[in-house]
């Protein structure tokens, strides 16, 4: 078949084109005075979300407003504003939405601690299951209550042991289908 190589080639082409798109995503070039400023710019542009093309940060967004906001961040860094001041500037205008890392407020408390909460619940459930199955396999724990204690053989009183022996003997003597009869016998 000649089709397969053609398919592979077109797939390769599509892949390379995808990378080409990424390369032109941010075409604006800024001149920074120090490497530290450039690093701060990169970090801030990565952490702010583009309000227009949602689910992209300012670095990767091609939206017009993203370019404006990148330039704004650049200007403010050059003006000597701190990261906190720039963040507040964005918050005042675009609200919590602009932050990829949400602030800790009453509204976002579930967002921050929800995963930990679910993790703890999960651990609790798993431990419960392990504990119960361990108790069942060992047969008797001090605190297991009457039903499980009776299931174990070591705790039987002499009377119970005698009754058990009698039942087993009955069962072996009779044919196995007369289960009900034998238990009736034992009760009498």
């Amino acid at each position: 078949m000649r089709l397969f190589p053609v398919l592979m080639k077109s797939l390769l082409l599509v892949c390379t084109m995808a990378f080409a798109m990424m390369a032109v995503a941010q075409v604006d070039v800024f001149d920074f005075e120090t490497a530290e400023q450039e690093e701060r710019f990169r970090q801030l542009a990565n952490e702010f979300r583009c309000p227009m093309c949602q689910n992209a940060n300012l670095t990767h967004s091609t939206g017009g407003v993203a370019a404006d906001l990148r330039r704004e961040i650049y200007n403010q860094i050059i003006d000597g504003r701190t990261d906190e001041e720039i963040e507040q500037f964005m918050l005042d205008r675009y609200g919590d939405f602009i932050l990829y890392r949400p602030r800790l407020t009453v509204q976002t408390i579930l967002l921050w601690f929800g995963p930990a909460l679910f993790f703890i619940i999960g651990i609790w459930v798993v431990f419960g299951i392990i504990k119960r199955s361990a108790a069942n396999s060992r047969g008797n724990e001090e605190d297991q209550g009457a039903e499980t204690a009776a299931a174990g053989s070591e705790d039987l009183t002499a009377d119970e042991q005698a009754r058990l022996d009698r039942l087993l003997a009955d069962k072996l003597a009779n044919n196995p289908s007369t289960d009900d009869d034998s238990s009736d016998d034992s009760r009498r």
């Binding site: 583009c50 309000p51 227009m52 939206g63 017009g64 407003v65 404006d68 906001l69 704004e72 205008r93 675009y94 609200g95």
Partner: peptide, 12 residues
């Protein structure tokens, strides 16, 4: 320039 738009929280 879109600078006043930023002050208004405009995104398009």
């Amino acid at each position: 320039s879109g600078r006043y738009g930023i002050d208004l929280g405009v995104y398009g």
